[in-house]
């Protein structure tokens, strides 16, 4: 008779058991802020489509302390999303070849930061002065 009795360990609370998992859950949580912010924009678009008075009400709502606090946290979440997004992108894209050599991952990540930085500046310039 077999005396085998393999023991299966429970997974409960796994995300707190390793700092890597904590960072992963943090990364996934940024989605909540992204989603709420997109809904805020959507509401803004709704207001915009119903005319000037409605739009101005949206602008006033954005000035409430709660809204400001949310956006400060959301901006942190968005930056964390960007950083983590760029750092895993080389795992998703096919290896980048240059002169028959694989471009090192660190260079790809750095390149993305530079590219994103330029986009941020252009976007900011267009919004503020465009």
């Amino acid at each position: 008779m077999s005396t085998r009795k393999p023991y299966v360990r429970p997974m409960a609370g796994w995300w707190l058991k390793n700092p890597v998992y904590v960072r992963y859950i943090l990364r996934e949580s940024t989605a909540v802020f992204v989603g709420i912010y997109a809904v805020i924009l959507l509401v803004g678009l709704l207001r915009l489509s119903s005319g000037e008075a409605a739009w101005n009400n949206w602008l006033i709502a954005m000035q409430s302390p709660g809204a400001i606090l949310f956006h400060v946290v959301a901006m942190g979440a968005a930056v964390y999303h960007s950083v983590t997004w760029f750092s895993v992108a080389p795992k998703v894209m096919p290896p980048l070849m240059f002169n028959g050599e694989k471009v090192p991952v660190a260079k790809i990540v750095a390149g993305q930061y530079i590219f994103a930085g330029i986009i941020y500046l252009v976007l900011l310039g267009l919004i503020l002065w465009g």
């Binding site: 992204v34 912010y37 805020i40 924009l41 803004g44 602008l59 954005m62 000035q63 809204a67 400001i68 949310f70 956006h71 400060v72 959301a74 901006m75 968005a78 930056v79 999303h81 960007s82 997004w85 760029f86 994103a116 986009i119 941020y120 976007l123 900011l124 919004i127 503020l128």
Partner: peptide
């Protein structure tokens, strides 16, 4: 999100309201 959201949140949610 990675290329626009930090800037958009900053402008619409922080810079203009404040």
């Amino acid at each position: 999100v990675a290329h626009t959201m930090p800037v958009l949140i900053f402008v619409t949610g922080i810079a203009v309201p404040l």
